[in-house]
Structure formats: C-alpha cells, structure tokens
Design a protein around this nucleic acid. Sequence first.
DNA 1: GACTGGCACTCGACCAGTGTGAGTGCCAGG
DNA 2: CCTGGCACTCACACTGGTCGAGTGCCAGTC
Lengths: 335, 335
Amino acid sequence: MDDRKLAVLRAIVTDYVRSREPVGSRALVERHRLDVSPATIRNDMAALEDEGYIAQPHTSAGRVPTDKGYRLFVDRLAQIKPLSRAERCAISAFLAGAVDLDDIVTRTVRLLAKVTSQVAIVQYPVVVSAVIRQVDLIRLNGSRGLVVLVNSAGAVRQHHVDLGDCRDEDLSALRQRLNQAVVGLTPGQAAARLGGLVEQVEPDARGLAANLAAGLADLLVADSSTRVVVGGVGNLARFTDQFETAIKPVLEALEEQVVLLRLLGEATSEVTVRIGQENEHVNLTAASVVASRYGDSDETWASLGVVGPTSMDYPSTMASVRAVARYVSQILAEG
Amino acid sequence: MDDRKLAVLRAIVTDYVRSREPVGSRALVERHRLDVSPATIRNDMAALEDEGYIAQPHTSAGRVPTDKGYRLFVDRLAQIKPLSRAERCAISAFLAGAVDLDDIVTRTVRLLAKVTSQVAIVQYPVVVSAVIRQVDLIRLNGSRGLVVLVNSAGAVRQHHVDLGDCRDEDLSALRQRLNQAVVGLTPGQAAARLGGLVEQVEPDARGLAANLAAGLADLLVADSSTRVVVGGVGNLARFTDQFETAIKPVLEALEEQVVLLRLLGEATSEVTVRIGQENEHVNLTAASVVASRYGDSDETWASLGVVGPTSMDYPSTMASVRAVARYVSQILAEG
DNA sequence: GACTGGCACTCGACCAGTGTGAGTGCCAGG
DNA sequence: CCTGGCACTCACACTGGTCGAGTGCCAGTC
C-alpha cells in the first residue's frame, strides 16, 4: 500500500473525527501538508474507496471512513496520544481517595466517562487466585437461613437457604464441617469436594446438608461471574442527530449485563478496539468499543472500557482507557 | 370552576397525551361528546389559558396543557385506570420467580420499566426493624481483615479493617465479645453501645478494638443508607424529537444516586406525582415522576417509581406503579 | 345571559422551482 | 506520475405561493 494513500486515509479519519462531515480533496490538501494537488488526492481517494477503506454518503459528497478504514487507522496509522502530566495527575488523584473496592469501581466508572466523554463500563475485579476464607451458616428467622461465603480477597457473597427444622447444634456442627472441608480451596476445588461431603454426613442430617451444599454450590459458581457498572450515559447526548442509529440501540444494549460482560470479556492486557461491525451484538454495529484488562496480572483482574461512535477519537480514547486501566491496577495492587 | 371547563381540560390532556400535538376546539368536540359548538369551547379555552392551565405554542395553533394543567388533571380529573386481569397476572408471575432480595429488586425494575414503558427507579428496601444477627471478624492476608455484619433480614455488609499484628486468639475473643454486645440490637442501639465496649477491653488490645469498633460503626451507619437501581433507559428513545429538553437532562440526572434517592424519598404510601417544575432538580423540570412507597408497612420498606415526560399517561402510569408496589410488597411479606 | 354561526385573520406546514457550491471523475498535457 | 481544467452531480438553502387548522370577535338566537 502506497505511503501517500495511507497518509490520505489518516488525514481523512482525523478530519472526519474532528468535524463529523464528509471530507473533500481540497480541504485535505489545505489542512494537511500533502504537497500535491487535489486531483492527485482524488485518484488516491478513488483507489481507497475501491479497496473499501472509505465511502461516499452520496455522489458529489466528500468521503467518510468505513469500519475497515478505521481498523487500518487504528492498526497502522494511529499513535496512542500520551496524556498530559496534568491529566495523569488528575486521574491518579481522583482514584487515590477510594476507600474500598466498591468505591474504586464507582470512581473508575466516573473517571473513565469523564476523561473520554463517552459511556464507560467497568467490570468488578475477579480475584482468580482467591481462596475461601470462611463459610458461615446463620439462622435469620425460623427456618430462614443464610449461607455466607468470604474469600481471601475480601469478597462476601450470601445466599438464602431453608434450614427446615434443624437444631442449632446441627447447624454449628455442619458449619464447622463445611469450613474444614473448603477453607483454603479455590471455588473450583471446593465445588468438586462438596459432593463427597454430603455422603459423609449422618443420614438424619443429610437432607439439610444437601440443601446447604446446594446453596454453597450456587455461591461458588456465582463467584466467578461478575457484576458490571455503567456510567456516563449522558455523554451519548452529544450525538443528538444520529439518535435512531447511534443512541437508541446502544441504550438498549447497555441494559443487558450479559452483553456488556461479553463485550469486555475479550479484552486482553493491551488496549483492544472493536469497530462497528466487528461487534457481535447487532445493537452495537454502529458503535466502537475500546477496552482493556486491568488488575495486577495474575491475582486480581477484570476489564474496563468505553462505548462510543465509530467516529471517535481513537488515539485519545485508547490512551485514556490505557491510562485509567494502569492507575486502577496500581491502586488495586497497593490496597 | 365550571364543570364544562374541567371537562374541556380533561379532554385536552387526554388528547394531547395520545397524539402529542396541540389540540384544537373542533377536534375536541368531535372526539369527546361535549354537545356544544367549537366556538363555545374556544371561550372556555381562552378562560383556561388565562388561568394558566393550558398554553398555545404559537398563535393559531391548538392548546397544550401546562404543568398546572396536568396538576389539576391528576388531582381532580383523573381516575386511576385499573389494570386488566391479564396485566395483573403477568406482574404477579414475573415477580413470583424471584429467589432473593437482589433478584426481587432487579425484577421489579425490569417489570416497572416494561409495564410503564418508562424509566424505572427502585430503591433497595430498608428493613427498619431488622436486628443484628452476627458480627464476624475475618483475617484475609497478613494484617488485612474484614468485619462482616449480618442482620435478621438477611442483609450482609462488610468493611475492610487493618488488624495490625494481633493474634488469632485476640481476634476470636474480640469477635465473641462484639457478638455478645450487639447481637439482637438494632443498628442504632448497637452504635450506642459500641463506645462503652472499647473501654472494657484490656488495655493492650484496646487499639485493635477501637479500630474494629470504628469499622463496625461505619457499617451500622451505612446500613440505613440505601442503593438505587435504574432500568428501562432505552424507553427514553421514544422521544427522539425533544432530545435536548427531554432526554439529555434526564440521562444526566439519572447518574446521580443522590438525586434519585431524594426524588423517591418523598413518596408516601399512596402514589405520589411530581410534575415538571415541581421537581426540585433543574434537569427534571421537563419531566414528571410517579413514585410510591412499597414494603410491608413497618418492617421493610423503600420507594419505587418512574420518570417520564410531563405528557405521560398519568392514569395508567399511576395504576402500574401502584400495582407493582403492591405486588412487590406482597412478595416481600411472604418471603 | 349563555350559546352559536359566521367571518376575517394568523401563521406554521408543505411544495415546487431555482441557484449555489462543494465535490467528483475524466482527460489531455507537462 | 502529477496537474490543471472542465463537465457533471447533487445536497442544501432560499424563495414565494398555497393550504388549512386554528383563533378571536361579533352579531344574532334561544
């Protein structure tokens, strides 16, 4: 691929992202120092159009980048724009005040939405290597009971169970037994050991044990799935004009936790970009997702990212996402 | 106020809500059986306009209800439209499948958004009369520890604390002491008793005790504040045309937990309606909020509601909000 | 006194016709 | 291979004209 043609594509993407209007050959040579005439550029543009990198909304209009064009831009033409010192300080300061995990996640969403001016999505971190620290059985009222699971990362999960008419002694015996069996194990190991455990219980308490084990099993599974927090939805407001295509479907997609999880799930440690049609979800084929994994490598990790129009400023957005991911990782590692 | 004038106002509101277009005198007499001529209606309309109940977008256009007009409509003219049997069944069935509190709230939001076709807001229920069932102190890694609080309603809250270099025996002794002191108390009572407790501890463990007590105190306070869940934001998509005035500000307001809590906070047991300007928050002066308290009277309660355009169908919306509130209350009382 | 029919008036919505200009593709010449 | 020139296209803005829904007012009627 010709060097100048690449330069032209880069120029088109840059200008279009700035103005959101089709860009023509003359404006191109004027705004960028291409040192050739508009006619030459036109030939290049025709070629780029043939190859599918740009398109014309209608004859006799300027060109607009296609998804394929953005892809090439992101892969080969864009340099991630480093953030200014002031921006980095602001990010760091904003996150530093967090008191617990909830707070970290909340702050991260707000921060990400603010620095990118887009819709931010943050997944709660999963501590892969976390082991079970404690299992509790608590009677609430009558036969209503609660199984509480605490892991070494400090995550607490609970599940309601029916205790039947068991006595308190049975309950505390079972509690002790459960703890002996699963404390120190990962959720996966614990789930495997639960089955055998019920067998060992005296026959008359077996019903209760099975019940509790089922509740605990639910918790162990739930532990690996995670919650997702969304923020900055108001930022969609900037694209009033393309409401039907750009806003409505995105709003709908944002309601689906599952969709969001899948969106973020594919992010690798470096910043990942999915452009328009590359997104599997139909509602997001007019949007782009910039995501990154965060956390301290093996211990704790999850993904975060932003959703915006395909015509977003990729270099800046990617830089911001990467920076936020790094700073959150740092905070997590410290605290 | 003249009977017929009220009828005219009711007719205007009804028609405008249906069509979202200014309604004129002729259409009015045709669609509603007013049994007078358009000219007569025009006189009434002029009077209603003088009194501030309706307005003209421009000369020679039909009339549109003002906030004041909607208020009168809601207070004196509207009858809450009872839901059909099928609708009631659907609501009941949808909620019945819930497994725990989280699930109830999630389902309620979805349900409310769906039946009203508007943005739904549900506050997590606060169990006023809940007492503390158990306090746990758990060591995570090194000096990182966790205080876990479980109340009789099955709510679980946790808080990270620094354990310093205390021994496991000290920890379990303290745990026992704390439990003896606060189990069975309401958060308020417990908070009051915590102060004295630290005094009684042997001097060398007092630092740790104070630390833990502080963590627990945080939890006790947090217990009374609550979370809010929002859903059905995609329903805003119907009002594409009035984006700037009707959607953007609402999206922004929905991001603020505090605003939402205050919005719902004022709801009484019956359905409450706040129309346009009546909302304190600037961003919501073009929207209406229909809210209701739910829960089983004294035990457990919170608020839920919807946010929509001032030109919403009040009778239906109020009916739906009321119905959902009642069914959720029922589910909460049962489980 | 309340209602009605008639009338003049207003003003946004819609439509067709027109000009403008940004932008293109193509071609012949340097 | 690049360039200047030229013919062509087409969205968009502007114009003026018509239409019709809607109003306010007034004189007349029950």
